[in-house]
């Protein structure tokens, strides 16, 4: 009995030690960056290496000097990612609901192919897309970026929402149909309250994906509109290389919105699941 307890305690210690090691690998680089942004930098030429520099917030204001439109870009990124995530989740909910409540040959197959579509790298279609968007006069427009970001992430949203919808019992929906409710009132009154948390979780994940997209905003803009990742490419060119503390401050600023979003809504993120249960 006491042997078993000792064994369990040893297991727990090993587990915590391994987790701390993982934290060192996965989070320490970000802590290092945050310290540099706060002016505490490593000095590797001293022996042994040391840290130097008084903590300061100056580097955060330097970002605005080095990249004058950075705050504007931050706003563009936020607005575009938010609009695209909402649009994609809305469109995906309707399609996922239609698929989950239809019976036809190969309906499972279609949902698997949505996952393949979600895995398709943007490079597979952005070259002709940039041409199409130029012809549609959507280059350098907010709408062009939002619609494309939404389209890119819609397949993943359909896959996840289908997985949530197919598990629901259809009893309440049947009752609403018998009452003569329209498709919209069934979705609003019956479906939304049940899959609302999954939609929220999906919207957050899509926001992160959109926020970090590079290729899409890069080929669809020509300088008139910039998102943060596109601006970051210019941090290092032949003409200039940003100082490390300034770049670090920009990195931390660009990470903060998504980190806060995830931290605040971490509970609801449990609902973002890729396991589509085979209903048959």
């Amino acid at each position: 009995m006491s042997g078993m307890r000792a064994q369990r305690r040893r297991d727990r210690t090993v587990r915590v030690l391994l987790l701390v090691a993982a934290l060192g690998i996965f989070v320490l680089p970000l802590v290092w960056t945050a310290l540099a942004a706060l002016g505490v930098q490593a000095n590797n030429s001293s022996s042994p290496p040391s840290f130097h520099g008084p903590p300061t917030l100056d580097h955060f204001s330097e970002v605005g000097l080095a990249e004058p439109s950075f705050w504007q870009e931050l706003f563009t990124s936020t607005a575009a990612a938010a609009c695209a995530a909402v649009l994609a989740v809305a469109a995906a909910l309707l399609t996922a609901y239609g698929l989950a409540r239809s019976r036809f040959a190969g309906d499972r197959l279609i949902i698997q192919w949505f996952l393949v579509l979600a895995s398709l790298p943007a490079m597979a279609y952005v070259i002709p897309l940039s041409d199409l968007m130029r012809r549609a006069h959507l280059i350098d427009t907010f709408a062009g970026v939002v619609l494309t970001e939404a389209a890119v992430t819609t397949p993943l949203a359909i896959y996840v929402l289908y997985g949530a919808l197919v598990q629901l019992s259809t009893e309440w929906e049947e009752a609403a149909w018998l009452d003569g409710a329209s498709i919209f009132s069934v979705i609003r009154r019956v479906v939304l309250p049940l899959v609302g948390p999954t939609m929220g979780a999906t919207a957050i994940i899509l926001f992160v994906l959109d926020w970090n997209l590079l290729l899409v905003p890069l080929v669809l803009t020509a300088g008139g509109l910039k998102t943060v990742p596109v601006a970051m490419i210019d941090f290092f060119t032949f003409e200039r290389e940003l100082e490390w503390p300034t770049a670090a401050a920009a990195l931390i600023i660009s990470l903060l919105p998504v980190a806060i979003l995830v931290a605040v809504f971490h509970r609801v993120l449990d609902r973002f699941a890729l396991n589509v249960a085979p209903a048959d």
Binding site: P29, L30, N44, W244, A259, H266
Partner: peptide
């Protein structure tokens, strides 16, 4: 733990490139 361990994925590939460019560099890197 879960939120902390998701942090690296929240960093965009571009930002990750910028970060590791410095972290692997000689004078200020990890």
């Amino acid at each position: 733990w879960r939120v902390l361990l998701l942090l690296p994925w929240l960093v965009s590939p571009i930002a990750s490139g910028v970060m590791w460019h410095f972290l692997l560099g000689p004078t200020r890197g990890i």
